[in-house]
Design a protein around this nucleic acid. Structure first.
Length: 837
RNA sequence: GGGAGAGUGGCGAAAUGGCAGACGCGCGGGUCUUAGGAGCCCGUGGAGCAAUCCUUGCGGGUUCGAGUCCCGCCUCUCCCA
């Protein structure tokens, strides 16, 4: 029995050696066929790292080390998503400057990563809140501006009265602020928008080129982009001569046009506002709109909520029939989707059905339910619900008798011909509101000039530095930068007159939309990255991060990648070939870890007690990498035991191993030696396929336990034959290498104790020998009609007949057969023999 | 409401359509020990003295054979509205 394994000293020793060796520095010029860009989502430095980070970066580290042993030129960088609201929250609460809070958290988080011993190329570290980085965030904004992809718009935005700030749609959760969870209201502000909708179709099409992305994320993005094909149809009425009414609706069901019995418009839409001012029932509309404004979108569009609305008193003419159609204002219609108006087809749309019933509006059937559809009789007044499926059209002038599915294109063409409408594709995806009335973000490089309007800051004047002199952090409902005169006051780049800087900062999703480009050339002072460096490394070969970013970051960084390609700065259309989502880390009761529950596990405390290697092993062993895990200290305790057992085993065998050259391949003769070799190669096989595939390292670790469980005592092995001892030497060396990506410090130490020099990560990843996995004989099941009756042993590779013959030697089988002859015998070699009687 | 995923011992889990529960935790027993909350060894899905029977959320189906494939439910989790 060897010494106690001193993980503290050993882990520190190897972390220092790796630094000294520069083991993880990416080559400046990777070999094209060897380049591998491995990336994990960078961290928002809020205090220290949590267990989610530990898992994310632990998986990435193991993969990175595996790649290194496979001779890849690995780019594996790290950085910090360092702008963001929590820093201002800390400033307000504790009076600490957001910069100091952030940089302090980064230092702490970085020391935790160093304690993990992660194989990052720290020379490429980036920090989004530092000028050398955000200079190019501003450069990106100007690129978008040059390409016509940003614009200003006065529009209702989500306003959190508690945080005194504007929120993006994805920052509104269940109608509340994602930070403080107070209700979100609406407010009018002039804001910068990014025209991501210009790329909606390409972002959608690109998904088809990403077979190595999780299907769930592809589906989520498709859903989020939300393409729908249909028609835009105009309903008009003469109205007052100066002010005729004309309402465009978008519908995916033009086949139900003849069933329209009313229109609904959103209260805050242009036509809704006009109705509140000038319609016959203006007063009622205005009152209703005021009430609707107080409701959240979620409330308004919830399917189970009672539908409300008021008649405007206006009527428009049905474009096909000329019939008068009443116009309602209803809050289940949103101004931001489609045209802000929908046609009401109560017979064939669920919400319209409910609304019409409530308002006493007529139903017009234009799609016939098939005969026999329960409840859908000839009398529409008795229908239990709307008939929403397509079907045979009726009461629809030129299209009667046709099937809606088949007729829709013809209807759209006909509408266009008649001048009533046109084909239209809409997307649920909306333009991206990026202005934030906050301090701790990247300043927007635009200048407001009284004569020239809004003028971009020239490239050579970048970065527009964030002033650091602010001391009063309380949000005042305007950007904190508005209160820094020396920041605001500038001159117009065009005319030289006094002008004002834009006082908003950018959504931090902008910072993270291009960071993957910066890593390839992080010290470039003129461009985000050189074309050469981009060509050498892009795209990311494997990107690892949580599934919570499926629709936010993972869409935005695809968008930026496409813009950069269009502008000729890079040559890839998609940022990442493969995306992997690791599972969540829950507490032992299966709950989310959170400060309020007091169930946080601190990675640094854990590593102090158990070591980095044991902590990782525990995490990998809990479950496959993509499944959620419940953290348990018992598991880490067990992993620590495993570390000690591996250490003891290898140190016990140092002498045996030393007697054989490093490339010895065992020629076992005894079955014990064969078992050892098989178990060792099984470890290798499991890890190998995990690293090349699903990153599920749990069964590899199980194989390590199995190997340990059957390993003979060193004292016994001393008496073994030369070939058998060579087998043991081979197996020990194999174990050390195969486990190295998962338990790097331990295996470096063992590699050294076995006489290895340099680093085990400069050793080649071994190839497993399929012959080693084969057994001489196997036990097979003997079944009668699929029920197991007995077990017998056959030689590996025996014929079907030999299997059957071996089975027939079983007394239990013979008595089960009771003298009958099987009608059929199914033999699965090495598995079973099944007699069908 | 829409989308995605998951249901297997006391617990985490494993299983190219082929012996369900590998491996670990926990638990029980043994051993070493002044001691054991360390180490090592043995046992451990359920019922039964036993032969044996039952067992992968529920109900059907396909198949010689289903945890795995198909259809219909139930429950839970995550994401979106």
């Amino acid at each position: 029995m060897g010494d106690r394994y001193d993980f503290t000293a050993t882990e520190r020793k190897w972390q220092e050696r790796w630094d000294a060796l520069g083991l993880f520095l990416a080559p400046e010029k990777p070999r094209p066929d060897r380049a591998f860009y491995l990336l994990e989502m960078f961290a928002y430095p809020s205090g220290d790292l949590h267990m989610g980070h530990f898992r994310n970066y632990g998986i990435g580290d193991a993969v990175g080390r595996f790649l290194l042993m496979n001779g890849k030129d690995v780019l594996h960088p790290f950085g910090w998503d360092a702008f963001g609201l929590p820093a201002e929250g800390a400033a307000i609460k504790r009076g600490v400057h957001p910069r100091d809070w952030t940089l302090g958290n980064i230092a702490q988080s970085k020391s935790t990563l160093k304690a993990m011993g992660i194989a990052y190329d720290w020379s490429r570290e980036i920090t989004t809140c530092l000028p050398d980085y955000y200079k190019f965030t501003q450069w990106m904004f100007l690129l978008l501006h040059r390409r016509g992809l940003v614009y200003r718009k006065n529009a209702p935005v989500n306003w959190c009265g508690t945080c005194n700030t504007v929120l993006a749609n994805e920052q509104v959760e269940q109608g509340t602020c994602w930070r403080c969870h107070n209700p979100v209201a609406k407010r009018e502000l002039e804001q910068w928008y990014v025209r991501i909708t210009d790329y909606a179709q390409r972002l959608l099409d690109g998904l088809d080129t990403l077979p190595q992305w999780p299907a769930s994320t592809l589906a989520a993005q498709r859903n989020w982009i939300g393409r729908s094909e249909g028609a835009e149809i105009r309903f008009a009425a003469p109205g007052p001569a100066a002010n005729p009414i004309s309402i465009e609706v978008f519908t995916t069901r033009p086949d139900t046009l003849w069933g329209v019995t009313f229109l609904s418009v959103a209260p805050e839409s242009e036509i809704g506002r006009r109705a509140a001012a000038t319609a016959p029932n203006a007063a009622a509309v205005a009152a209703y709109a005021a009430e609707a404004e107080r409701r959240t979108e979620i409330e308004r569009t919830a399917a189970d909520r009672e539908k409300t609305g008021v008649a405007t008193g206006w009527h428009v003419a049905h474009p096909c029939t000329g019939a008068p159609i009443p116009v309602y204002v209803a809050d289940y219609v949103l101004a931001t989707y489609g045209t802000g108006a929908v046609m009401g087809v109560p017979a064939h749309d669920e919400r319209d059905f409910v609304f019409a019933r409530k308002m006493g509006l007529p139903l017009q059937v234009v799609v016939l339910p098939p005969t026999g559809a329960e409840g859908f009789t000839g009398d529409v007044a008795t229908w239990p619900t709307a008939w929403t499926a397509p079907g045979v059209m009726t009461a629809s002038a030129p299209f009667d008798g046709r099937h809606s599915d088949e007729a829709i294109p013809a209807i759209v063409a006909w509408l266009a011909e008649q001048g009533f409408g046109r084909p239209k594709v809409t997307f649920k995806l909306r333009d991206w509101l990026i202005s934030r009335q906050r301090y701790w973000g990247c300043p927007i490089p635009m200048i407001h000039c009284a004569t020239c309007g809004v003028v971009p800051v020239p490239d050579e004047q970048l970065p527009v530095l964030l002033p650091e002199t602010i001391t009063n952090w309380i949000p005042k409902g305007r950007s904190p930068l508005a209160d820094v005169p020396e920041f605001v006051a500038t001159t117009c780049p065009k005319c030289g007159a006094a002008a004002q800087r834009d006082v908003d900062t950018m959504d931090t999703f902008i910072d993270s939309s291009w960071y993957h480009l910066r890593y390839v050339d992080p010290r470039n002072t003129t461009l985000p990255c050189s074309r050469e460096a981009a060509d050498a490394w892009l795209p990311i070969d494997l990107y690892i991060g949580g599934p919570e970013h499926a629709n936010g970051h993972c869409l935005y960084f695809r968008f930026f990648t496409k813009v950069m390609k269009d502008a000729g700065y890079i040559d890839v259309d998609e940022p990442a070939v493969r995306l992997f989502h690791h599972g969540m880390v829950l507490d032992p009761q299966g709950r989310r870890m959170s400060k309020s529950l007091g169930n946080l596990v601190s990675p640094i405390d854990m590593m102090r007690e158990f070591g980095s290697d044991a902590s990782r092993i525990a995490m990998f062993f809990f479950a496959p990498s993509d499944a959620a895990i419940s953290w348990s200290e018992d598991g880490v305790q067990g992993a620590k035991k495993l570390v000690q057992r591996v250490f003891d085993l290898v140190t016990d065998f140092v002498d045996v191993v030393a007697a054989f050259p490093v490339d010895v391949v065992g020629a076992p003769s005894s079955s014990s030696a064969k078992d050892v070799r098989r178990a060792a190669h099984e470890v290798l096989r499991r890890f190998d396929s995990a690293f090349r595939g699903d990153l599920a390292l749990n069964t590899g670790i199980a194989a390590v336990y199995e190997l340990l469980n059957l390993f003979p005592k060193a004292a016994d092995v001393a008496a073994w034959s030369q070939g058998d001892r060579a087998t043991v030497a081979e197996s020990i060396r194999l174990l050390v290498k195969a486990l190295a990506p998962v338990a790097p410090h331990l295996c470096e130490e063992l590699h050294e104790r076995l006489g290895g020099t340099g680093s085990v990560f400069r050793e080649a990843w071994p190839t497993f020998d399929p012959a080693a996995l084969r057994r001489d004989e196997v036990e097979i099941a003997v079944q009668v009609n699929g029920k197991i009756k007995a077990r017998v042993t056959v030689a590996t590779g025996a014929t079907d007949a030999a299997h059957e013959a071996a089975a027939m030697t079983s007394d239990v089988l013979l008595s089960s057969l009771g003298g009958k002859t099987a009608k059929r015998v199914v033999v699965v070699k090495g598995r079973l023999v099944n007699f069908i009687v």
